[in-house]
């Protein structure tokens, strides 16, 4: 889901930087206000955690493996605003230091994976789990459903961003200048693979991690820690 440089045109790249700027500003403000002084390193730890969990190979049937994004998991653990900063930092490190995801596409990648994914996932999780106890099965199921739905929303958005490129940027002769596939191809391609494979990987990983944390230290899942 990491969009590389060259897939999106300058208008789309610029648009998402403009959209993300106030979101990053609000996230910094909210986190600064709610974060206790001694929890400052937790943001960096959260960012490194989101970076590392994207590297895990999760086995799926047929001997293959897939990667989870872990955006919803980070949002459940840190809260959505802190997750927004942590995932943004992880994406910037990936783009700048390891060439994974484009520098011009940081705005779009952050919108999909550091804003839509954690916020959608966090509120779906809160809605389904409602007031259930921290160690209830309902929370595990809520985490899985939130992971699946939020990842597919983010994948759908990525497909939409790819799909509008031929409409926004083409020559007078109809030649595509950036991602060459329209909505009719990009959207089903992105949604198909995520609904069939990666959404399930995200759901299983998110649910199982919540289940393990319930056993290990339920306090880590309580709201209002940050």
């Amino acid at each position: 889901m990491h969009i590389p440089d060259g897939y999106l045109g300058p208008t789309t790249c610029g648009f998402f930087y403009v959209v993300m700027a106030p979101i990053w500003a609000v996230a910094s403000k909210v986190v600064k206000k709610t974060l206790k002084a001694k929890q400052v390193p937790l943001l960096a730890i959260g960012a490194a955690f989101s970076f590392v969990i994207m590297m895990f190979n999760v086995p799926i049937p047929g001997g293959t493996t897939g990667h989870a994004v872990g955006g919803v998991l980070v949002a459940i653990l840190l809260g959505p605003w802190a997750a927004c900063i942590a995932i943004t930092v992880a994406l910037v490190v990936q783009a700048l230091l390891f060439g994974d995801g484009g520098i011009t596409a940081i705005g779009a990648n952050c919108f999909n994976m550091a804003f839509v994914l954690p916020f959608a996932g966090y509120y779906i999780y809160r809605f389904i789990s409602y007031n259930s106890p921290v160690n209830s099965n309902r929370r595990v199921i809520a985490a899985g459903i939130a992971g699946y739905i939020a990842l597919n929303i983010a994948a759908g958005l990525t497909g939409f961003e790819f799909g509008i490129q031929p409409m926004l940027h083409k020559t007078a002769l109809g030649q595509a200048l950036y991602c060459p596939y329209g909505l009719n191809a990009a959207l089903p391609a992105m949604l198909g693979e995520h609904m069939l494979i990666f959404g399930w990987v995200e759901a299983i990983v998110t649910a199982l991690v919540v289940k393990y944390l319930q056993k290990q230290d339920p306090g880590l899942l309580e709201e209002g820690r940050m």
Binding site: V40, L42, I45, V209, K211
Partner: peptide, 28 residues
Amino acid sequence: DYKKGQHMVAWSMASLWYRSYQLNEAVY
């Protein structure tokens, strides 16, 4: 097998977060 593998990955992530959270105070 893949089911056990998924549990192992999730356990590793949970354990990593648990250890990271404990690290926070020492770093501060």
